[in-house]
Write a protein that binds this DNA or RNA. Sequence first.
DNA 1: GCGAAACCTATACGAAAGGATAGCGGACTA
DNA 2: TAGTCCGCTATCCTTTCGTATAGGTTTCGC
Lengths: 221, 221
Amino acid sequence: MHVAEILKRPLTVVSAAPNVAGMRVLIADDHDLVREALASFLKSEGVAEIVTVPTLDDAIRAADESGSFDLVLLDYNMPGMNGLEGLGRMLAANDRRPVAILSGNVSKAIAEQAIRAGAAGFVPKTMSSRSMVSAVRFMAAGEVYAPFNILQQADTASGNLSQRETDVLRGLCEGKSNKEIARSLDLQEVTIKLHVKTLSRKLNAKNRTHAAMIARELNLI
Amino acid sequence: MHVAEILKRPLTVVSAAPNVAGMRVLIADDHDLVREALASFLKSEGVAEIVTVPTLDDAIRAADESGSFDLVLLDYNMPGMNGLEGLGRMLAANDRRPVAILSGNVSKAIAEQAIRAGAAGFVPKTMSSRSMVSAVRFMAAGEVYAPFNILQQADTASGNLSQRETDVLRGLCEGKSNKEIARSLDLQEVTIKLHVKTLSRKLNAKNRTHAAMIARELNLI
DNA sequence: GCGAAACCTATACGAAAGGATAGCGGACTA
DNA sequence: TAGTCCGCTATCCTTTCGTATAGGTTTCGC
């Protein structure tokens, strides 16, 4: 997926929040340190209300109880998220208003998937607080944010994998046998073998275990 | 390993740094946000000099050029660290003075290994800045710090693995075949098979791939 | 010295994975 | 419409894995 394609994604700006002053922001991260840091930086920028929570469930509850936020920042690795499933739940809880993914690992794969899944942006924790504040402002205004350098990353492997191959790879990462993967995808075992072989070649993996580890390493799943 | 055993580790207090005022602290983390947050919190506590760097190599260079620090905080997941190997290098560069491990994942396994390897402590990022500051002060004074609740975690798996099993597990995580692992450990293939079986049982893994993924998940390697 | 535990080896067999080759049908395009 | 790419299936064969059973050694504490 190229930058152009990402930007083609239809934007539904439910409500613009141009000035930082009146903004309500929800930060969900299980790292106390990160929560405090983000909150204090945004506070010093004049964000009106900042709510911080340590889990996805708390985040959803917060949106349910106190109404939707101008922007929600969700940590990718956080209790309850499992992958991007949590993103969908949070989007629903926030009335489809901007929800962005915060992540410790800079991964093009995750960034692309997140934005495809409706995220308002992808914010790596390797960013400085200054850039972070800019991104927050940008996303709260209804724009889609993703660091340019991440999108520029070479497609080492991810983009090359077909949908089926990705499905099979997910099965590998769960430690399933070919037979089990075949059953869950309603395919024949031989087909799975073929996919495992081709996907391993694409990832430069020696075998299924190696492929699974590489997938983990690159955050392909 | 129990708390008592950890505390039995001989402490070599090269130089005590009782008052925070004159302290020099080095923070190495590839997350800009975390660096800035830690630095600002410690600064507000009156730490005299704080140096922050984004990689292990930069950290070692900093210690080489400007002399050893009263405390070094090393992110476990950071370019150049690979596991606890970086800890050893940093300890050498810092004249064996306190070096602590900072980690995003709360893992008893890592905490134990780190302290066994000579770390001044294990600080999870889930800690609040207040606790973090206390821990920093504690470790800079030559004490060994580890959150009690982490050490209390059940030995789901880690402690149960023998040395050999850990070696084999490392091979699994590199995607090696039994034969390759056998060669690298100078053992017979059958022996590796045995270890893979027992280690998989201990980890509740269905097969080698599953075992490798679980090991990654729990940061056993 | 004895038991316990961790470690290593051997043989053997069924299950699973890996690899090669070939054929089929749908989709997309020149 | 023919060519081509892609995904799925099939057959065949070799290698590797997983498991079981049956030993053996060393090390440690009691």
